[in-house]
C-alpha cells in the first residue's frame, strides 16, 4: 500500500521535475548555443540592435482605462510565453498590467517578428540559417537589458502614447520593476 503511494509520488516527481526544469535548461542551452554562434560571427548579443516597434499593443495608448492610465512601473509584468510543457519553445513576450484586483494583457511581442538587422545579411549570405537566427534573437529578447528596455518603452507608451518619446536616460530607473517569469 505504502509502496503504491510512493510509486505515485515518484511519477509525479518525475513529471514535475521534467516540466519545471525544462524551461530553465532550454533557456540555458539556447544561451550557450547563441553565445557560441555570435562569438563565431564576431558579434555580441548585448550589442545587437533591435526595434521596439514589433511590440503589438492591444489597447490604444495613452488609454482612458483607469487600470492602464494609472499603471506604475511596478504594475508592469513581462511574461515569457512558452509553448508545450515537455518541449518548451519561446513564442513571444506577453506584457501585462497587474494590480491587486486586475490583470490586463496590454501588449505582445511575437518572437517571429523580433528581427535583428545585423543578422539579416548573414542569413541572406547563408552564414546562419533560420534556426540559428531564432536562437540568437530569442537570446537577445530574453536578455535582462532587453526586458528592462521593453518594460521602460511600454511604460513610456502608457504615459505619452506613441507620438512622443521621452529619452530613456531620463527615466526613473530606481523605480523600475521587471518581472520575467
Amino acid at each position: 500500500m505504502i509502496t503504491g503511494f510512493v510509486t505515485f509520488i515518484i511519477v509525479l516527481l518525475f513529471v514535475l521535475t521534467i516540466v519545471v526544469s525544462g524551461r530553465y535548461f532550454y533557456g540555458l542551452e539556447l544561451r550557450t548555443k547563441a553565445n557560441k554562434l555570435t562569438r563565431s560571427l564576431g558579434l555580441k548579443i548585448a550589442e545587437l540592435d533591435y526595434s521596439f516597434e514589433q511590440i503589438v499593443y492591444f489597447a490604444s495608448l495613452p488609454s482612458n482605462i483607469p487600470t492602464i492610465r494609472n499603471a506604475s512601473r511596478a504594475n508592469l509584468v513581462i511574461k515569457l510565453d512558452y509553448k508545450s510543457l515537455f518541449f518548451p519553445r519561446l513564442s513571444g513576450l506577453k506584457i501585462y498590467i497587474k494590480t491587486d484586483t486586475e490583470r490586463i494583457i496590454l501588449a505582445y511581442l511575437p518572437i517571429k517578428d523580433f528581427r535583428l538587422p545585423s543578422l539579416d545579411p548573414l542569413l541572406e549570405q547563408g552564414k546562419i540559417d533560420e534556426s540559428d537566427y531564432q536562437k540568437i534573437s530569442i537570446c537577445r529578447l530574453i536578455h535582462p537589458a532587453t526586458l528592462k528596455e521593453i518594460s521602460e518603452e511600454v511604460f513610456q507608451q502608457i504615459q505619452v502614447g506613441r507620438k512622443k518619446r521621452k529619452p530613456a536616460d531620463t527615466a526613473e530607473t530606481q523605480e523600475r520593476t521587471v518581472k520575467a517569469t
Binding site: 510512493v6 509520488i9 515518484i10 516527481l13 518525475f14 521535475t17 521534467i18 526544469s21 525544462g22 530553465y24 535548461f25 532550454y26 540555458l28 542551452e29 539556447l30
Partner: peptide, 17 residues
C-alpha cells in the same frame, strides 16, 4: 528513490535540449 528520480529528470533535461 526520490533522489534518483530528481537526478534522472534533471540530467535528462540538461542533456536532451
Amino acid at each position: 528513490v526520490f533522489f534518483y528520480t530528481i537526478l534522472l529528470s534533471v540530467s535528462v533535461n540538461m542533456f536532451r535540449f
